[in-house]
Design a protein around this nucleic acid. Sequence first.
DNA 1: CATAATCTGATCAAAAATGAAAATCGAACC
DNA 2: GGTTCGATTTTCATTTTTGATCAGATTATG
Lengths: 284, 284
Amino acid sequence: MASTLENLSHRILSSYDLLSRSERKLADLLLEDPDRAVLNNAIELSSASGVSNATTARFFKRLGYPSFRAAQKLLRDRSAAQPVATTAHEQHSGATLAEHLENDVQNLVRSIEAVRTDDLNDAAKSLARAEKIWVVGFGENYPLAHFARALLIRIKPDIRMIPIGGFSVAEEFSSISSTDTVIALGVGRRSRSLRVLMRAALSANAEVIYITDQIARSGADIATVTIRCRTNAPGIYQSFAAPISLITFLCSMVARRLGESALGRMESIEELHLTWDDDLPGEI
Amino acid sequence: MASTLENLSHRILSSYDLLSRSERKLADLLLEDPDRAVLNNAIELSSASGVSNATTARFFKRLGYPSFRAAQKLLRDRSAAQPVATTAHEQHSGATLAEHLENDVQNLVRSIEAVRTDDLNDAAKSLARAEKIWVVGFGENYPLAHFARALLIRIKPDIRMIPIGGFSVAEEFSSISSTDTVIALGVGRRSRSLRVLMRAALSANAEVIYITDQIARSGADIATVTIRCRTNAPGIYQSFAAPISLITFLCSMVARRLGESALGRMESIEELHLTWDDDLPGEI
DNA sequence: CATAATCTGATCAAAAATGAAAATCGAACC
DNA sequence: GGTTCGATTTTCATTTTTGATCAGATTATG
């Protein structure tokens, strides 16, 4: 029913296969940054995506709008009425793929805009020189912790996870020392245990890198470095795209710092994989 | 430097944006099933992808091969000498934060552009009605599997992970039945175990949802539904933003299908959390 | 209300893409 | 070696896409 009311991203996605090459350039630009459609004028859109003015006009027509101007008007009206609808009943009725995409792109962009490169550098430095790294994540943060550990273990030898099944948190963690660094994952629900561990780490003079969402407070009493991610999502789940992306970037900074030693480690892991003959390149 | 040595899928991906519409049809066909490039002749490729003969010839030229025939010969030779481990050395140049962001946004957008809504629907339907769900991910895919399971367990009661520490894969998996659905995570390195499990699942008449990258083949013999994610990244790690995002979306589709029962489950989980008093909303 | 900027819609020419068909190639067979 | 046949490559005409331009309509701005 709402076919005329559909989002711009919707329309683009649903007719993506029909688009020609230059139209795809526009499509990609607008999917990556939907705001442009209302913030920029036709000329800016054209030059930003490297197509001619005429193509931009034709593009919006092909998407089913009467004209670019009409499209812009529609979109402006829509974006005014948007936030209301999204919060009300849309909440658990679920978003479309296009909305999901738009949302996650925003999370990524906003998160990374907001992060201070200095913080990342400090974090990377700390991780690179740490003797042991502790990755801590309870509840919904556990998968995130798992992910971070999987990245780090490829470039450093001693990465410990908390909590780890069957072992006592306290006893494991008691061996933390001032040469260690803790990555504390605190997105969404922040457990008391997390706070306790962060405190304990700090008072053992270890460094703490706290990865959290925007609602958490920060400060030197909480963590050495705090990195915030945006995790807004329309559905019942939080969006983990931004934390995942930032963690990956952080880890690759660490790898870069480690240089040769990280590479060596990765290569020997690669060799082990090949030895076990457990992979089938390209095929399945 | 090794750009001429890359395999077909790599070539296709690296010039994907330059391809015209019909060329993309070919590209998609070959990405889904790279074997066709050596098993089929030009005429078959053309008709399978619905383009003319001439276009197929030009397509291989545009990819940098001297001709279709030459390409086929190269690919045949290559497939014997395939195990040329993914050039792990030239890559560690390291990107800036901005480049990283740009890259991940692209991965996200392009992945979602390419995904077929029908596939997602089928996958969600299958997951919603499954009696048990098996989440399978080896190696680098293990964290991804972990993540998927964490989402699903909040809306359905019986989600099993493979591999799970300390238990025999075979014995665990033997209880799979035709009312089950498997989520197979095969991004990057695809292990033999994964393939074996997918086969076993299919032959037990369970449904298999295969989440992989663009370089994998697909088809009914491999999986019931295949969902491809773009995972390009400049550094030493793959980008998991797109798979994470798609998995999240898929799970929220499932939740939507389950409706009341999923909500009920989430609420009782919430209550349990509160009972344990292990969370500190907003503060830490 | 006047002016400037922007958009529309049309038209044209150049460039690119495409399919049909002709020319060429290459291997199998005599 | 020569021939034949099927597959590939190239050619060529057609269609589609693209960008450029321009006159008139619309909208923003002072």
